[in-house]
């Protein structure tokens, strides 16, 4: 996962955190997703799912827990969602905590 600050689409610099999620998101991501809230420094957080694969119900539970913890102090935006992710997030209430980003996927993540 990556964390970085980048320029917004309008050109104005907006500080935010950025996390790139890769691979299958399931029970094995427990530790990783628990750590994310403590790494958030800004009031805007982007989660990039363009490299994410299958997300099962345990993965959804972990994402919800993570987003709930971040949501009290930062706005969460989701990007790189596949049609499958969209369906899944809509039916499981993920979009009630985190909205899809309007802009296309950002580039230049720093590892």
């Amino acid at each position: 996962m990556n964390s970085k600050a980048s320029a917004s689409a309008s050109g104005a610099v907006t500080a935010h955190d950025y996390f790139l999620l890769e691979g299958t998101i399931d029970a094995h991501c427990d530790k990783l997703l628990k750590e994310i809230p403590s790494r958030v420094r800004h009031t805007q957080v982007y989660f990039d799912f363009s490299k994410a694969g299958r997300i099962n119900s345990m993965g959804i539970a972990l994402l919800l827990r993570c987003f709930k913890e971040i949501g009290s102090r930062a706005e969460i935006r989701l990007e790189g969602l596949s049609p499958m992710h969209n369906m899944l997030f809509k039916m499981t209430g993920v979009f009630l905590l985190a909205a899809p980003a309007q802009s296309p996927g950002r580039e230049g993540g720093v590892r």
Binding site: N56, S57, M58, I60, A61, L62, L64, R65, K68, L88, M91, T92, G93, V94, L96, L97
Partner: peptide, 22 residues
């Protein structure tokens, strides 16, 4: 329970079965 639109419980609560159904 899982069909309720405002349900964002982060526990298990049969979400797997709900996903299978949907």
């Amino acid at each position: 329970r899982n069909q309720e639109e405002d349900s964002v419980a982060d526990g298990d609560g049969g979400r797997g079965l709900f996903i299978i159904w949907r």
